[in-house]
Design a protein around this nucleic acid. Structure first.
Lengths: 243, 243
DNA sequence: ATTTTCCATATTGTCGACAATACGCAGGCA
DNA sequence: TGCCTGCGTATTGTCGACAATATGGAAAAT
């Protein structure tokens, strides 16, 4: 990872006409960059659940003082990706099976709601994006590429929710998605018949294209419930003692 | 507000037997105390939407350096109660009507889900709490005490969700509740016929006591939709320019 | 041998100082 | 007048140092 400290030239060149004069997006605040960095480590299992997160090592690796690191940890704690024990440091959150079940219940509901609303308000570009991801999903599925499958699956579902046009819903859904990300990723990579749930996407896409909100809502919730039942066993033994 | 810096003696004396030896709860981290302080100011309208939050004045008022204040602001930004503009400071979040509508949609869904789950898993003590708050609600209603009414109303609804036994749901619901808190408070204080929605609580309580989840779900969502329609007009003109 | 006490060390928490950036205004220029 | 330019000031961003706290183990006591 490389941190950028100056307002660097990540030019915001979309396919639209670019306004004259250097319209560059300012560098993201250090705190945000660090939070992103640690968040990535967590959800991609570079930092294991229950593992301690010390400030000094990160400070040295990223060549940054501890101040922005602490701010980043506060952000991640608010996102419930880390637990901060006063005077004793930060740990990677380590939810138990019961916690995960509870999160999934809420997540399913939000996912279903997202689908239902998307049937009402999704823009053509958003529909196209979902169709595109469905295509990638199929490709990855036939190639038995679990990693690509997982990625397309993510984009497929997030794409539907994005179609709801409800920023709050998208945000909360996305945040819960992160809290479940690692477990779901490990599940997809490990489960024997990871193909079973794949077929459900065809129905989901169809309901979406037909703009059948209530049906899509039901399908999405059922889909997640199914995927979870597949994954139940994979919720590995707690790597480290939880508080 | 008073900040406590040492592990002070907020002894955790419940009505239960107190374990021997000084079992005192450590002082909350400064950062948390400050976040709570600013959060209170925001939801109780001590800081208006769109208003700038400067670090130095708070630093002087609370007799604290800017470091923990900045950490607190990061927390509040993650909770979407403030917006941080890089290099330009923090503002109190100022959601538009459309944003509020979107939040309420999600909030209603979560509230309904909470009620439905609570019908399955609420503990007797939790049911009693809800009944208690219903009583206070009635008292405040008859006394035409809007402030007390609002408070009991809050406790009534939060109590139901707490009965769901789903920490994630409680947390997310609570967070959205805070984002809507100020608007709802102002609405209750200003609306002419603030009494209309009050009658719905009887049905809600009955469905809860009858453990009729689906019905309670519907009632709660309808209740919030109704309350919102009452409040629509109250969503005042943006106090300050929003970004 | 077991427990307790005490201390050295590692880590987190807070601070004041400095650097970087944005803002407002005066002055210059067309 | 209207607009640009440059500078002083106010504010935010980052840092290194120090204070406060927890941790682990050696030494002492039972």
């Amino acid at each position: 990872m490389s941190l950028t400290r100056v307002p660097d030239g990540q030019s915001l060149v979309s396919d639209e006409a670019v306004p004259r004069l250097s319209l560059t997006v300012a560098a993201q605040p250090l705190t945000q960059q660090i939070a992103n960095h640690i968040r990535d480590l967590i959800i991609h299992d570079g930092l294991k659940p229950g593992e301690r997160i010390r400030e000094q090592p990160i400070s040295e690796q990223l060549r940054v003082s501890r101040t922005p690191i602490r701010e980043a940890l506060q952000i991640l704690a608010t996102e419930r990706l880390v637990d901060i024990l006063p005077n004793r440091g930060a740990l990677v959150a380590n939810p138990g099976v019961e916690d995960l079940r509870g999160m999934l219940k809420v997540y399913s509901m939000l996912d279903g709601l997202g689908g239902e609303l998307a049937c009402l308000s999704a823009q053509p570009a958003q529909v196209a994006e979902v169709e595109l991801q469905y295509g990638l999903l199929q490709v990855a599925f036939e190639a038995k590429d679990r990693s690509a499958y997982f990625q397309a699956n993510q984009a497929f579902h997030l794409g539907i929710v994005a179609g709801s046009g409800n920023p709050t819903l998208v945000e909360i859904h996305g945040q819960l998605n992160l809290r479940l990300y690692r477990t779901r990723y490990l599940a997809v990579m490990q489960i024997k018949d990871w193909t079973s749930a794949a077929y459900q996407h065809a129905d989901i896409l169809k309901a979406f294209l037909d703009r059948d909100g209530p049906l899509l809502n039901r399908l999405l919730q059922a889909h997640l419930g199914f995927a979870w039942r597949q994954a139940e066993g994979v919720v590995e033994t707690p790597a480290l003692a939880s508080a």
